[in-house]
């Protein structure tokens, strides 16, 4: 056990991903330590979301392997990785739009609960208790992320900022070890970003490791312990934010050129 705890939570080794002839990721290696907030930045089209999708099982990598929590994963389905403890949100919000906010979070409890068809039909004591626990936990999580509207509100009727928070609540409901957020601050105003930052710090303080893709440099700099920069599918820098910000390669990638 001690051994596993000493390892990085997530270790990527030479991950490569091709779409036809296009190489979206090549030879990306990085590791995420337990309990840190790890930022992933890069210009548009740099392969951030692709890397994200590889980690969460939506895409299968063509090369390399990754280890999570001491186990090696290759060609795994998303639900297997969710079971292992990786939960995610989506860049373009993907809630269950026609279900209520509460139901959205309750669905996140699916993989930590057990009731099957017979439980549903018999509705026995174990099932009833489990249902009650699911609803209770879901309600708590809604409160935790700061959604004060009634849980019966349809997900699609929440405001944009609330929808982003609901996605986080739903991901937290899966009891993750690693919470992977794909541009959670996209489209948020300064106040909303500030409270998102506070929420992420609170989540980290509760012991969950956070992986963050973000464009908002201020948020990254103020929040992340370490940052990796992707450009054209390659990792061009990694380190603490201040260091990375001054890295000439990073500046070149963002501003173009490189010699000027």
């Amino acid at each position: 056990m001690n051994n596993i705890a000493a390892l990085p939570l997530l270790q990527l080794s030479s991950i490569g991903k091709q779409f036809g002839g296009l190489s979206a990721l090549s030879d990306v290696s990085l590791h995420i330590r337990r309990g840190e907030i790890y930022g992933l930045i890069g210009p548009n089209g740099a392969g951030k979301t692709t890397l994200f999708n590889v980690i969460t099982g939506l895409y299968q990598a063509n090369a390399g392997e990754f280890q999570f929590n001491g186990h090696s994963y290759k060609a795994c389905k998303p639900h297997v990785l969710a079971q292992a403890g990786i939960a995610r949100t989506f860049q373009n919000i993907r809630l269950f739009a026609n279900l209520t906010a509460l139901e959205n979070v309750m669905i996140g409890r699916h993989l930590r609960t057990r009731a099957g068809v017979f439980g549903a039909l018999l509705h026995n004591l174990a099932t009833r208790n489990e249902e009650r626990a699911i609803a209770k936990r879901a309600g708590e999580l809604l409160h935790y992320v700061g959604i004060e509207k009634p849980g019966q509100t349809l997900a699609k009727h929440l405001s944009y900022g609330e929808q982003r928070r609901l996605e986080i609540a739903r991901a937290l409901a899966t009891d993750p070890l690693l919470l992977a957020l794909d541009e959670p601050a996209a489209g948020m105003n300064a106040t909303e970003t500030e409270s998102l930052k506070a929420l992420l710090q609170m989540i980290r303080a509760s012991g969950i490791t956070v992986l963050l893709i973000e464009h908002d440099v201020k948020l990254i700099m103020g929040l992340c312990d370490r940052v990796a920069v992707l450009d054209y599918g390659k990792k061009i820098a990694e380190g603490i934010p201040e260091e990375v910000r001054l890295n000439p390669g990073v500046i070149a990638a963002y501003l173009g050129g490189g010699d000027e």
Binding site: L58, P78, A82, F90, F96, I107, G108, H110, L111
Partner: peptide, 19 residues
């Protein structure tokens, strides 16, 4: 609920751990 999740968004459902 899991069925409804699949109906609403299959990708998100599977990312939430639904087989």
């Amino acid at each position: 609920r899991a069925w409804m999740a699949i109906r609403e968004d299959e990708v998100a459902a599977s990312a939430m751990g639904i087989n």
